[in-house]
């Protein structure tokens, strides 16, 4: 099994986090991360970055924005086809 360089690791990181890498590359990424403290930090903080964003719920839209959207739809509906 050939070792990954830090640069190889970076180029595989995104797909690793998406779980779309094949098992061989996956293992090599894991070996690299377990041996390279800097890449471990990059790996860990990128993973946390994605977790934080994925947990972000959209805020309710302002009531007036919602009302104007509904009014625009209503207007379109009343228009003869």
């Amino acid at each position: 099994m050939s070792l990954l360089t830090c640069k190889d690791f970076l180029s595989e990181l995104s797909e690793y986090l998406d779980e779309t890498t094949d098992p061989d590359i996956r293992r090599r990424v894991e070996v690299h991360v377990s041996e390279c403290p800097n890449c471990f930090v990059v790996f860990d903080t990128t993973k946390k970055t994605l977790q934080i964003y994925k947990g972000m719920e959209p805020q309710p839209i302002p009531q007036d924005v919602h009302s104007r959207l509904m009014a625009a739809l209503e207007k379109r509906r009343s228009r003869p086809a």
Binding site: L10, T45, I52
Partner: peptide
Amino acid sequence: VKSRLLRARLQLREKLTRFF
């Protein structure tokens, strides 16, 4: 898409590191 996503993720990681 994959290449831009990787860069976007790494850039955000850097930006958030300042806070986290």
